[in-house]
Design a protein around this nucleic acid. Structure first.
Lengths: 251, 251
DNA sequence: GAGTGGTCTAGACCACTCA
DNA sequence: GAGTGGTCTAGACCACTCC
């Protein structure tokens, strides 16, 4: 691996460093929209790595949407317009921060409850198992935008305090640092519902007004469902997603 | 590649055939929940391929959620409960068919229109460019469930007829087969809106009732935005998604 | 036919987990 | 330390695009 800027930090696998180098080149404008990158064999020589290592890096760049690869034609920088659109995408939760607003939260409930049939079904555990329930009002710039009701399966019946959450600010940070539960994947669904009397009061909207109803099952890096969460968001909220692969069939 | 069932079809790359073999084994119950698969080196010997080929297959199986791989520990069959949940996921559009219902459509408009500023912005083209507009009422079991308003940038100002759509049934099939436009990726956003008078009449709901409002920009395999589509769905509809990667930050 | 990406190999060494 | 997955190599051949 040569040509990576000389005195740069040389940490991590070669292909990851190569990803960074090439991405910087693209974002720095070295390659315009749809401009061809050097061939894989040339890149291998330029960066003094094997062709398979180059291919590994290019695969990651393609998955991230930075480049596209056409069999028999070459490898090209993705158009900046598409790159720009993609930059606004992320998980529903990620999405919050893209607004540049100040997030906040009020903890409405923190308790240990037995799993209902519904929650137990979602988490694939036996009903009645003791779960930690965390219900929060989410704020943006002090204004309520959603209610989150999370049921967390903490191993060993451990639990945490309201103070801990308020200090750390993030539920996931707490789960990772204090309980070693690393979220690895989430299954989400989104639909519409009407505000109940309680929703209406919490979110400061009229009873019966439409809300975005979202469910999430979070799966840990130990490959088990660890959290079931129901969220209701005011209609100013938007969910964004990137769907890869061919949209199939009768759309 | 040996042990692939003897007289099976031997088409396609080795690693893809290996994916199929291992997936069949898992779905056939050869490996229970979280049961370890043979090591990569063993799998390579068993199937008479190189270890890199095995790794390529395992990577695909992991991305599909069939297995999980833990560094230093081994490779394991994903729990069937998680596999089952994932099976219900797909793009918003895919999702329709999982219900086992009969889809249908009424074409409300098929015309050539100049791109508005908004549509031009979404497709990254100049305003005023002539686009094909296709507005359809989507049905499930004869009942209206949504309105889709699509703006398609067909190269060379070609267009298609109402009859063609009705014959083919699928807009994407038509785009692929008649215009060589292969959808490769989609960027979607979902939020809530209220039914306009027109929406209400089309969808047979009260004016002002909540709808799921969805936007989509489809990007072709030529890596340019080719379709902008606004969809409004009745509240019985649900959007499902799988979010991979660590949910980040202040969720 | 020349050039591109796609697949595949055999072998080496590193990083991690677990006993 | 033994076994696992993670990285990397040099070289071969195939499939595709374009001239």
């Amino acid at each position: 691996m040569v040509n990576d800027g000389g005195a740069r930090e040389a940490k991590g696998p070669l292909y990851q460093r190569l990803v960074k180098v090439i991405r910087d080149q693209i974002e720095g404008g070295d390659f315009g929209d749809n401009q061809a990158l050097p061939s894989e064999r040339d890149l291998a020589v330029q960066h003094a790595v094997s062709r398979e290592t180059v291919r590994k890096a290019l695969r990651l760049l393609e998955e991230a949407g930075d480049i596209y690869i056409d069999h028999g034609r070459g490898t090209f920088a993705a158009p900046s317009s598409v790159r720009r659109m993609r930059r606004f995408l992320g998980s529903f939760s990620d999405d919050t921060r893209h607004r540049g607003d100040q997030p906040g939260q009020n903890i409405l409930a923190l308790e240990v409850v037995p799993a209902s049939f519904a929650v137990a079904g979602a988490l694939n555990i036996e009903p009645g198992r003791r779960l930690t329930r965390l219900k929060r009002l989410r704020l943006v710039n002090g204004k309520p935008i959603g209610v989150q009701d999370a049921y967390i399966d903490i191993p060993g019946e451990l639990t945490f305090t309201r103070k801990q959450i308020e200090e750390v600010g993030s539920l996931y940070t707490l789960l990772i640092e204090h309980f070693g539960m690393v979220p690895a994947e989430a299954l989400e669904s989104v639909t519409v519902c009407l505000a109940s009397a309680e929703d209406a009061e919490l979110l400061n909207v009229a009873e019966g007004s439409p809300l975005l109803l979202m469910e999430r099952v979070t799966i840990s890096d130990r490959h088990v469902p660890v959290e079931y969460c129901v969220m209701k968001y005011v209609k100013e909220y938007t969910y964004k997603a990137r769907i890869t692969g061919k949209p199939s069939g009768n759309v």
